Simulated assay, not measured.
Amino acid sequence: MTSTTPPEIARKVEAYIPRFQLTRLLNQDQAGRRISLLGTIDSQPALLVAERAAFATDHAHLSTFPTSLTKIKNLGANDIYAWFLANTNTNGSGSDSSSEVPPDFKLNLIYPCTEKHIKKYSAQPTRSVTETPEIYANYVRPWIQRQREKGALNWIFNILEGRSEQEDIIYRETGEQGFLLAPDLNWDRKTLSSLHLLALVERRDIWSVRDLNKGKTEWVKHMREQLLAATVKLYPEIERDQLKLYVHYQPTYHHFHIHIIHMALESGATQAVGKALGLENIISQLETMAGDPDAGFQDVSLTYGIGEQSELWEKVFGVLKRGDEVDVEKF
């Protein structure tokens, strides 16, 4: 970025930064990517806000990015997914410094990845769709069934069946109504203001919020209570009213799970309206829903956003918008 500041003024203000003397941290936000510092420069009060710069997006820089990383430390691995912390090797030497430097990056690796992963992480226009009970029953549920048959849930079953990540489990109840709590792979496992945990249910007949009905209300309330209690017990610096519990619809993986995050974690696409449904609101809807114990979210219309490259848009909602017939056999 080219500066329009006169050279003499630029030199003057650039010299301020090395003279900044820290007093205290005022704030840390955007999941730790921006900090606000109070300090002094030449005995005068100063406020310094530091934010990690945007990535260079030209091919030359991106092609050398993986080899520029040092001190790569694996945090976990499960099926095709692995996640790491790493430092930037700014001098290109690859040598480790004798001083302990905090990691610059939290990395997620999907290997080998699928076409579905590629579409999910690609920039694409988003559409708002309304999924009626009829659309869900006739098209979306058969599509979900096909996704489950493709083995996309292997990483979840690895955890539930004790083949991976057992040392990370924070809390667990077993049985038909059992569930477990563990760190989400997107959390660095140390920055409490960006805390992100994931609760997985043991039973496999609940694919999403669509499978919750009035008869399951007390179970959902029990999970909420135990998840909150387990989280604040392990992280006593956090209080219950600093936590947010929600589920996604549509979820990326169709095995019912609950996200537990710190309220300070800034909202992104995964917490957007129409994507994240607050657990408290879900419980309230179940409690006030008319009908017998079988009445539930399969009986309501849900509006949410999906990308134009997603299978659900390409094979269901885009087809319906054109007025064509959805071919369930092609799922």
Rank of each mutant, 00 (worst) to 15 (best):
T4H: 08
E8F: 07
K12Y: 07
P18N: 08
R19I: 02
L22M: 13
L26T: 07
Q30Y: 00
S36A: 12
Q44Y: 03
P45H: 06
L48R: 10
A50F: 03
R52Y: 09
A53E: 11
A56T: 06
A56V: 07
A56H: 07
T57S: 14
D58A: 11
A60K: 15
L62T: 11
T64Q: 15
T67L: 12
T67D: 14
N74E: 14
A77L: 04
N78Y: 01
I80P: 00
A82P: 05
A86K: 01
T88Y: 13
N91K: 06
G94D: 04
V101F: 05
P103S: 12
D104F: 06
K106F: 08
K106H: 11
L109Q: 06
I110A: 08
I110K: 11
P112I: 04
K116N: 10
A123D: 08
T126H: 14
S128E: 07
P133K: 06
E134S: 13
E134Q: 15
N138V: 04
Y139A: 02
V140Q: 03
R141L: 14
P142H: 10
P142Q: 12
Q147R: 15
N154L: 07
L160K: 15
E165N: 13
I170K: 05
I170N: 01
E173Y: 01
T174L: 08
G175F: 00
E176I: 03
F179T: 11
D184T: 06
D188C: 09
K190N: 09
T191F: 14
L192I: 13
S194T: 03
H196T: 03
R203P: 11
R204N: 14
I206F: 08
K214L: 00
K216F: 02
W219D: 02
L228P: 06
L234P: 05
L234M: 12
Y235G: 04
I238H: 12
K244A: 15
K244W: 10
Y249D: 03
Y253Q: 13
Y253L: 14
H254F: 14
F256S: 07
I258S: 05
I261E: 08
A264I: 02
A264Q: 10
T270S: 15
V273R: 09
V273T: 11
G274N: 07
G274D: 10
N281I: 00
I282C: 01
Q298W: 00
G305V: 03
G305A: 10
G307T: 06
S310L: 03
S310C: 05
S310R: 09
L312M: 15
K315H: 11
G318D: 09
L320E: 05
V326K: 10
